[in-house]
């Protein structure tokens, strides 16, 4: 059974062009794009974290503008310091979700739930479907997806103020 698993893992490795520091150079362009140089060829890439909540920052898929994977970075630590820095900057942008520091109000309206929250940059309102519930993340905290597709993260519920915790009470176990 174990042998089979190892074989399967190796097979998967072959499918994904895993990259390491020796053949992949990453740089940040002026506009924030990430430029990957693979085998001497420079290409603008987009990032997709394979496990943004289970294991953020690792297993990062680099994809060209046609959404084809050009490299898979399993562990950024294997990259050079400059490449790692460029990757981390790009990850900060592609993995950005709106951080919520306080919940001001949660109101039910016809077919939608209206949330008013405080972010680090001020107040923001968003809406969820009545039957869409916040998701508990593997690393802790809550993730809420609004009707437009934006993600809102409440990192540590225990550090929220009392009123926020009261408002969220119905939405967490």
């Amino acid at each position: 059974m174990n042998t089979e698993n190892i074989d399967m893992a190796e097979t998967l490795e072959l499918w994904a062009p895993s990259a390491n520091g020796s053949d992949l150079i990453l740089e940040s362009a002026e506009d924030g794009r990430l430029i990957a140089t693979i085998d001497g060829r420079a290409i603008a890439v987009r990032l997709r974290e394979c496990f943004p909540w289970s294991e953020p920052g690792r297993h990062v898929s680099l994809r060209d503008e046609d959404e084809k994977e050009v490299a898979l970075v399993d562990d950024p630590a294997a990259l050079s310091a400059e490449s790692r820095q460029a990757l981390e900057a790009a990850l900060a942008e592609s993995g950005f979700v709106i951080g919520v520091v306080r919940v001001v109000a949660i109101d039910e309206e016809v077919e939608i739930r209206q949330w008013t929250v405080e972010t680090r940059d001020g107040r923001r309102c968003f809406q969820t479907h009545l039957d869409d519930w916040p998701r508990v993340l593997p690393m802790g905290g809550l993730l809420i997806r609004d009707v437009a597709g934006d993600l809102y993260r409440l990192a540590d519920l225990s550090r929220l103020d009392k009123r926020s915790r009261e408002l969220l009470w119905a939405f967490v176990d």
Binding site: D31, G32, R33, R46, P52, E93, S94, F96
Partner: peptide, 20 residues
């Protein structure tokens, strides 16, 4: 256009080297 989880980036590029 580079889509992200909640942040998207639109770059309009021009010039010979496709500068932003």
């Amino acid at each position: 256009e580079a889509p992200g989880l909640s942040a998207n980036r639109l770059s309009l590029l021009g010039g010979a080297a496709l500068e932003p």
